[in-house]
Amino acid sequence: MFHVRGLARIYGEGTAAVTALAGVDFDLFRSELVVLLGASGSGKSTLLNQLGGLDSPTHGTLLYHGADLARFDEPALTRFRRDAVGFVFQAYNLIPSLTARENVALITEICRAPMAPAEALQLVGLGDRMDHFPAQLSGGEQQRVAIARAIAKRPEVLLCDEPTGALDVRTGITVLEAIERINRELGTLAVIITHNAILADMADRVFTLSDGRIVNERINARRGSVRDLAW
């Protein structure tokens, strides 16, 4: 689905230039669950932003189904994000003035062939909290609303930026289970970035990033279930 070669992202110019990505190569495929591991500043968020069309590369190739994302103009990138990508942010980024159901419906209103907001919320186990405002939900619940929002459009790829970063272990597990279930049941490519190495066991493949490069790629012969992760 994604074909990435020599991808680099440099912020600033001259002596002030900061290299966030220093040339990475990899391919991502349908139905995979991929974990990008790395410490803070390793470039994993930058990479996720590149994949989601939120930012464009300085050098290198970034093909999505053979089309070069770097050459997409703003409307094309908007369409790409609208139809193909589901984002889950560390800070949830829900609209505080909309209920859980409305937060999901906000996105389903603008994309083709979405699932019903209620269905998406049921998938993440929030069928009974649909009419609550974000402020009335716990952190885990808010994150699951964010996941429901991301998957309701039936995206081809689900990009999750530290989805459990702000959550305790038990809540983290329910969130990860929701992501895994989407990946399994809908065949969505799921990319999770985290600094928590334990999550590596639930992935098909694990890339470790450091200083803007992929320093290790590990393939799990068998994916571990979220419940069995050694927290």
Binding site: P75, T78, R79, D83, V85, F89, I107, A150
Partner: peptide, 12 residues
């Protein structure tokens, strides 16, 4: 953040 989310989710 809300603006960013809207744009990330495909609002033009």
């Amino acid at each position: 953040e809300q603006i960013a989310m809207l744009k990330a989710c495909g609002f033009s």
